[in-house]
């Protein structure tokens, strides 16, 4: 469901753009500090409850992780990764959910008009009533976020609690976090908070601490403090960007294709206007002479 109170900045399969330029909204962002995450999963429970998601059955396969990956009914997952570094052990925990990219690959890939929208505040949302379940959004997303409902085929993912944010509340996951490792505010504020925390970590011996806000997708409305500058240790792509194929298709091939379609129609009418209908050749039996 698109939320009417928010300004839509971009909409899937809309060639000429949908920006109204009417209302100004600062871009929002979640802030995740993996160095103070204790993997308690309060955020998982809060997301499930707020969004009335159906309970997903889980099975022990040798991990603390609730599920191996996100699900159409499970939009927020703490990922657990054990890693040995310099004779020491690390157990890295990262909250995984839609990154709400500034240049959303899912939106670019989506062929169904209005199925995926980006609001002026940066939130990327799905309208299941318009989703055709084609799965193209999965191709477009570098974070493997879009998941599809088993029966209806509709795509579902974290909405950055757009229904809460529009009335001035923070997302459910942020509210539930007991250690304060999750925060919410304007992108500017969250980036400043992240940079300050990274400086503090560097001072405490985390030499390659970094703030993950990948520019390959124009930055994201989820900024993540990583204690170690190796995103792949946290199941994050090192340098995510919208796949070339999707960009090429949407920005080049599709417009060209539309242009070609128009050109073809024009060409047909133009040819008719210039040359008229196709006439049978001279000397056909039963035919009359050509009229001039």
């Amino acid at each position: 469901m698109t939320v009417q109170a928010l300004e839509i900045k971009r909409s899937s399969a809309a060639m000429w753009g949908t920006k109204t330029g009417l209302r100004e909204k600062p871009v929002v962002s979640k802030y995740i500090d993996t160095t103070t995450c204790i993997g308690c999963k309060a955020c998982e429970a809060a997301c499930q409850e707020w969004n009335d998601l159906k309970t997903v059955a889980t099975h022990q396969e040798g991990s603390y992780q609730t599920l191996p990956h996100l699900d159409a009914d499970f939009w927020n997952l703490i990922r657990f990764n054990e890693r040995e570094v310099d004779g020491g052990l690390m157990w890295l925990m990262r909250k995984d959910q839609c990154m709400h990219c500034a240049e959303p690959g899912c939106l670019e890939a989506c062929p169904a008009p209005g199925a995926i929208v980006q609001y002026a505040n940066g939130i990327v949302d799905v309208d299941p009533s318009k989703c055709i379940g084609c799965g193209y959004c999965s191709t477009g997303c570098p974070f493997d976020v879009p998941k599809f409902h088993k029966k209806t085929g509709k795509m579902a993912k974290c909405t950055l609690c757009v229904d809460r944010v529009e009335v001035g509340l923070e997302p459910a996951c942020i509210k539930a976090c007991p250690t304060g490792c999750l925060q919410f505010g304007s992108k500017e504020q969250m980036v400043a908070m992240g940079n300050a925390r990274v400086s503090q970590l560097k001072g405490a011996g985390f030499q390659d601490a970094m703030l993950y806000d990948p520019q390959g997708v124009g930055g994201t409305s989820v900024v993540t403090v990583l204690g170690h500058g190796h995103p792949e240790w946290y199941d994050l792509p090192r340098d995510p960007h919208v796949p070339l194929l999707v960009r090429a298709w949407k920005s080049i091939l599709r417009p060209l294709g539309v242009l070609a379609a128009f050109a073809a129609v024009l060409g047909v009418f133009g040819h008719y206007a210039t040359y008229g209908p196709k006439e049978p050749p001279e000397g056909d039996a039963g035919g009359e002479g050509r009229t001039k």
Partner: peptide, 22 residues
């Protein structure tokens, strides 16, 4: 973290019982 003693296992249909896979 995900469980409270011998209580959580009795939760019917909710998310708490699923957070720790088993």
């Amino acid at each position: 973290t995900e469980h409270f003693h011998y209580w959580t296992k009795h939760q019917a249909g909710g998310v708490l019982n699923e957070l720790m896979p088993g």
